[in-house]
């Protein structure tokens, strides 16, 4: 048996596996992305297509849609592994659970966060966002979406054993998302009016570093509770 597999090897094996599975079920990548695009297109229809209003609310719309898309896609993060038993294999493996969990979260971010960041500028154009704000939009999404994946994974790990976890998940996760939302939209608004937004970016970066260090422990502990 490959008992002597190194940490990096374990990390990348799991990452590769998750990416491969996602590529085979393409829906897992495209559905959240489509959801993101559709939610954003609903807003101009709902609040009117006046360019002035849209450019004012664009950062909020894009970020709220990103939160919802990330939350919905997270629901399946551990579900399949939980059902077919590979999650328990991970818990039993000699490699630290935190590392494996981190690899799964990274896979989730690569599959849902990155496409979202690529599409976001396009949607920003459709919403008449101020052109000064584009770098800020990309930067906040780059720093913020991994935080969403990490924090969300805690909630998913807590509810993975429950049959009806969906609505509960939103109640658990969305309050934790609020700081990211506040600082990200704040940064974009500052950028649109040509004010320095380094402060907000630094706070989001701090949130990223903090959750990168602490969240894997919380996710690991939650998984142990859920699979008991």
């Amino acid at each position: 048996m490959n008992r002597g597999i190194s940490y990096t090897q374990a990390f990348f094996t799991l990452l590769q596996r998750d990416l491969k599975i996602a590529v085979r079920h393409r829906g897992d990548i495209f559905n959240p992305l489509l959801f993101f695009i559709i939610v954003v297109t609903l807003f101009p229809l709902g609040i009117g297509s006046e360019a002035k209003i849209l450019s004012r609310v664009a950062p909020g719309i894009i970020w709220v849609a990103a939160l919802l898309a990330s939350m919905l896609s997270l629901e399946r993060l551990f579900k399949a592994d939980f059902v077919d038993g590979s999650l328990e294999q991970m818990l039993l493996s000699p490699q630290p659970l935190q590392l494996l969990v981190l690899s799964k979260v990274l896979a989730h971010w690569l599959l849902t966060g990155v496409p979202l960041i690529i599409v976001a500028p396009l949607l920003a154009v459709l919403l008449h966002m101020d052109s000064n704000a584009y770098p800020a939009l990309i930067e906040t999404l780059l720093l913020g979406t991994p935080v969403l994946s990490l924090l969300g994974a805690i909630g998913v790990a807590l509810t993975v054993g429950l049959r009806k976890g969906g609505v509960l998940l939103s109640l658990l996760i969305l309050p934790l998302y609020i700081p990211v939302l506040i600082f990200a939209t704040g940064a974009i608004e500052f950028a649109a009016t040509k004010q320095p937004y380094d402060g907000q970016l630094a706070i989001i970066a701090a949130l990223l570093v903090g959750s990168l260090v602490l969240a894997p422990f919380a996710i690991g502990a939650s998984l142990r509770v859920s699979t008991n």
Binding site: I154, G155, L158, T159, G161, L162, K164, G165, L168, L171, L172, P175, L176, A218, A221, S222, V225, S226, N228
Partner: peptide, 25 residues
């Protein structure tokens, strides 16, 4: 969130642990 997570587990030992993690976070 803590209240409803505690309520949604049948097994209250697990429920307490799950709700506890959420409370600490």
């Amino acid at each position: 969130g803590v209240i409803s997570l505690y309520a949604s587990f049948e097994d209250k030992v697990l429920a307490a642990r799950a709700a506890g993690i959420l409370a600490i976070v």
